[in-house]
Amino acid sequence: MFERSPVTRLLPVMLGALISLAGTTAAHADATLDKIEQRHVLVVGVLLSGGPFGGIDPATQKPRGLNVDLAQELGRQLGAQVQLVPVLPANRVQFLQQGKVDLLIANMEWTPERGEILGSVPTPFYRVGGSAAVLKDSPIARWEDLKDQPVCTSQGSSYVKPLTEFGAQIKAFKSSSESLLALRGNNCVAAVHDATLINPLLADSAEWQGYRALTPELNPAPSVIWTRRGETDTQARLDPIVQELHRSGWLIEAQTRNHITPASPALVELQQKFQASGA
């Protein structure tokens, strides 16, 4: 009557083979380190929003900044070719989660909420807090003065939460450049970003002469290299490299090379810590 075709008869066998194959690939826990060691490629998401941490060099049209230097140095030490992928604050987490990038060096500070959804290299490479650019004659002197005032920032900024707690009305733009333009258009009383973006901008640029920065820094937090959650092998491989970069003074030198002002006291502190423990 009805006879099974050879293919249908083999179906359970093929399915079984497929399932066992899937099982063997799942045995590799940390795909990123495997990929780096086998294919010698490291894909790093960097934030190129301008400023000394990451931006485009107007002369050569190439990315530059501390983020870029650090990515290249990691690649050199791992013997891998570095591919840079520009990310935005609003999409960087998704880029990492979906595997478009292996690591994030994107001005993203460690917070407990982020620590739950992603993994990170334990040793931070920088410490940074928020600062606000306000008009020189503005009455705002303390962070508490921002209560019920419109404040510009970027979507995905880690300062949204503390600013909400101060009672500020947040206006979050796609990136820091739009936020700063909106401040200059008087759409808000302050623009809050990393102090490492605000300080050099106000110090160097003639266009920003009418503005001053708000101190002290808001919520100083460690900047870390982010990995996908659970990729402990990659973290364990990168952690001694970052510690060595502190110990040898490479990070302090990179800070000077990229004209990051004011120089971070945290870098000196970390260098002393690792020099003491390493010696």
Binding site: A90, V93, E113, Q155, G156, V160, K161
Partner: peptide, 8 residues
């Protein structure tokens, strides 16, 4: 966007 950039 404001919600998903702060949580997963």
């Amino acid at each position: 966007i404001m919600i998903w950039t702060q949580s997963d």
